[in-house]
Amino acid sequence: MTEEIIIAGFGGQGVLSMGKILSYSGIMQGQEVSWMPSYGPEMRGGTANVTVIISDERVSSPILTEFDTAIILNQQSMDKFEPAVKPGGYLLYDPNGITRHPERKDINVYKITGAKLASEMGNTKVFNMVVMGAYLKMRPILEYKYVVEGLKKSLPERYHKLIPLNEEAIKSGLEHLEEVHKLN
């Protein structure tokens, strides 16, 4: 199994930390992983993206131009990465702030109202965990127990009191994934 993922959105949405938690979860499950951010003069409000690879084999190139799965959280990223999903691959997006919805018919498309769900939970910071939950429902490549371990490893000790809240957000994502277009 090799899953090549791009996660893309605004800086401040938790794109990089979602990638880190997925990567750590992969390690906990005994897998090879890589996490490669776009780095640069990025800031809150600018675009941010990260390539995460989770594989049974040693990861070769950490940098890719096409992906099995794209997790897309703003319009700029939709324009950039919808064409980069491999035919037959998966696209997950949050419709919040999206003006042009995905158009491809040769990929599986799902959505999650992550911003809305997080705000209903009273903490918009867990937005990324809602989206990650939806991803794990769409692509069940990681066992839940390893995800919780990955979460613990990724968060500094002083934030461990927030783990139940993050778990709640992941579960919300698992429950609210919506199918938009599924290939046979």
């Binding site: 890589s34 996490w35 490669m36 951010p37 780095y39 950490p62």
Partner: peptide, 10 residues
């Protein structure tokens, strides 16, 4: 280089 410096791995 910037790739190896910035990427995370096990």
């Amino acid at each position: 280089d910037g790739v190896i410096g910035q990427m995370m791995e096990k």
